[in-house]
Design a protein around this nucleic acid. Structure first.
Lengths: 137, 137
DNA sequence: CGCTTATATAAGCGTTGACTTTTATAAGCG
DNA sequence: CGCTTATAAAAGTCAACGCTTATATAAGCG
């Protein structure tokens, strides 16, 4: 299964968001997801399996707990695929947050290229936590 | 429909790859995709509709032709989502190719980042082919 | 050991998605 | 105008997906 396929599901994206902060037990993930999406434990277990099988997450047993972690390789591939589109926004100033995430802000003060509006940045900085607002029926 | 959902399909990803080199008519896209995936014209038309409706592509009529183009906004969102995982590989050496793909070499030579960065397009034109190797049954 | 906790698998079901073939729209052109 | 080209929409089919309930495995603990 291609990584993009696995990433199509909001539950799985959310799981990865949670894992981006570090290893989590299946149980911890399950309680958050259950609360947020209202689905059952087996449903989440199945999503975890998809993440495992698509290489996006790895598991480590510790007693009866399963510790999940992000496995970056497929995400790096997604990132690489996306690279060909960066030209579409990268020299525009409203991509400032992306730039910041990459730590290249030094350029803001050197002689700059584009024109105006830099106000987008603060705007995006605020949106922490979940990026997806969609919900399941 | 979330961008990630639309990107889950290899045909749609391939269409976007083709569009990353510039505007294309529905017909041009159709012949390439038909050759590569062996699916019908209506099937491709439906994929184009999904791309339109998910905001990933825009259309412009010119006579009886429809000119499609990449619409970067949702891809930028995907990029932003992905940002939180970059730390997983960005300082590791085995991410070298990704770094290169992002054109980080500008930093190695003097920081010439000024004007209209047009080399993105030509560069990508070189490695034309498909990135996805998967196929439909 | 038997009970509970943590997690996965199995089986079944409704919905969605990606096709197909067929048909519509609409511009170009003789 | 009628015919052809370019593209989309409609309707139907089949497989895949995401969910559920029920059940299995296996470690911890009294």
């Amino acid at each position: 299964m291609h990584a993009f396929d696995a990433l199509g599901d909001p539950v799985r994206r959310r799981i990865l968001e949670l894992l981006s902060q570090g290893e989590q037990t299946s149980g911890a993930l399950t309680s958050v997801i259950r609360a947020e999406f209202g689905i059952s434990q087996p449903a989440i277990s199945q999503h975890l399996r998809v993440l495992r099988e698509s290489g996006l997450a790895s598991v480590r047993a510790e007693g009866t707990r399963r510790l999940y972690a992000v496995e970056p390789a497929p995400l790096r591939e997604v990132d690489a695929w996306l690279a060909r589109f960066r030209g579409f926004w990268e020299q525009r100033l409203d991509a400032l947050d992306t730039e910041l995430a990459r730590g290249r802000r030094e350029r803001r003060h050197g002689r700059r290229h584009g024109g105006g509006d830099a106000h987008h940045a603060a705007h995006h900085a605020a949106h922490d936590g979940r990026t997806d607002e969609e919900e399941r029926p």
